[in-house]
Design a protein around this nucleic acid. Sequence first.
DNA 1: CTGAAAGCGCTTACAG
DNA 2: CTGAAAGCGCTTACAG
Lengths: 338, 338
Amino acid sequence: MGKEITIYDIAGQLQISPATVSRALNDHPAINVKTKALINAKAEELGYRSNKFASNLRKQKTNTIGVIVPRLNSYIMSTVLAGMEKIANEEGFNLIISQSLESQKKEIANTKTMFSSRVDGLLVSVAFDTDSFEHFQPFIKRKIPLIFFDRILENSNCPAIVIDNIKAGYDATSHLIKQGRHTILHITGNLKRNVYADRLKGYQQALTEYNIPYNQDFVWETDLSLETGKEVAQRIVSLKTLPDALFIASDLCAVSCITTLKELNINIPKDISVVGFNNDPVSQVIAPKLTTIHYPAKEMGEIAIKSMINHLKGNLDLDAASAITLHSELMIRESGIS
Amino acid sequence: MGKEITIYDIAGQLQISPATVSRALNDHPAINVKTKALINAKAEELGYRSNKFASNLRKQKTNTIGVIVPRLNSYIMSTVLAGMEKIANEEGFNLIISQSLESQKKEIANTKTMFSSRVDGLLVSVAFDTDSFEHFQPFIKRKIPLIFFDRILENSNCPAIVIDNIKAGYDATSHLIKQGRHTILHITGNLKRNVYADRLKGYQQALTEYNIPYNQDFVWETDLSLETGKEVAQRIVSLKTLPDALFIASDLCAVSCITTLKELNINIPKDISVVGFNNDPVSQVIAPKLTTIHYPAKEMGEIAIKSMINHLKGNLDLDAASAITLHSELMIRESGIS
DNA sequence: CTGAAAGCGCTTACAG
DNA sequence: CTGAAAGCGCTTACAG
């Protein structure tokens, strides 16, 4: 195992000071172009690699951004992370990723790890049951930038990257209404979360606009899992009067529900129209193809990380109250057309 | 922004040496229990957090493990990573994750980043087209442990965590044969990769065992994408004689293919039986439910990272030639039963 | 069981 | 444009 090359080795061989080597390697403007070329060539020749720990220790920066997500293995989140990873990599930032597994408790533990890892900034999409901002206070106190994305904490006074969930909920619901549907069941997630609360608001807005009375019994708060999809289907067929449409806040749950409904001899979309959410690849490979809301997951990841990096570099000052809203879009396919 | 607390602050307030504080904080056995308690209490009181950069610089370790995967946003990979993240977190290791996007070129860039980030160890699942071991040599030279998982590089002489793809291919194919199927089309990925080459071997073994001649035209090497699933379906119906079964090396592709075949009035499984691969959640929510091979993704992630951590801690010496094979299992559902 | 001292490899304010 | 020197916050061999 060969000894690690340092700037002193380069300096020694070139009869030059370590300070100059350091500057040259960092492309400092004051250094002579020829000197830089010489130093870079020697660094290459010796197989030099910079020691980030020494550099970070000295600079008091970590170049590391923390990301906390509810789970890694969902289509939306892994796509968001793929987008973040790409940009972070290009910009020379490291990502520390951890998952809360939908539990505030685990999320609190994650924030502690992030804090002691001294991340330069933190990007968070909160768990189902998070109802406190307490665990983020240490970051605020130390002025470590904190940005929420997708599932945000309102009143946190932190920048947020979101889609317009109200509009998306409105689009989904009004599409169903325009198809002549009036008893629309809305299957959603924990209403503590903006993403679900806002979709519900959009659902209500559409009903109001078309003079359809809002019935609270038509909103089912669930965990949106595959199992839930099946249970929902069974519960639906046992209802006195069948709804004529479903607006389900997750494609995976919607697909599971549709499959079970079909097994129970319900015709989709003839008997019941369905609109999902996310534009998960699965939405295109089932029959009937699922009408859904396209969620710009990759873009969200890219924009969230870019905002953070720009802020850290001082290029962009994130206003505490600012929010970036991405465009989402109704993808009309067979399941929502009657 | 309050000043960061260091061991000197604790030492100063307690009238004790920084060396003792350092030892106490690291639970060094030589330190008096009372002294330790005192120091820990003071550290807690002052909100001390250890500076990993100083510590790593001094110890010449990074406590960081690099992971390179083909892509983040596939069910299998995000689940593998979820498993890794969980264990790494518990054991106090950081993960740097990057994706090759199925390109050797990007994979090479990723290895360079990992190398200059001085990861203590590297975990890799290679891209579709990787055909050189060259970019991993710097790790070998520096004796930085390198472990492959899922898509491994044979002859690399590195430890590998895999499933028995030959057996899985055999199980899938022989199941179809037992259902009376004899013209089984095998849709697979890049045959450079062990996962696909081995599944093909298993397919061939099963044919041989049941005295079915092997026909090379029945093996289609593809990218296993959703689009490919559609194209495959269209190509199948244009064939002079229809195959009576499909063994597709990815559930997502299989589901897409089934849906298109159904649109083309092919009855699944009556006309064509289908077996997929991975046990992706989507396999359970389509009609007919997909017969597939359960892939122990979470376990693979956990075992891969545990092997690495144990090796780094010196608990377990990874034999260069060793391989860990995880159990996979045929999940019999409707699509493969005729 | 505790301490003094050196050193890990950088960066940068200051000086020239 | 270049250099000398200090210091970032730890850990550990050595000494007692």
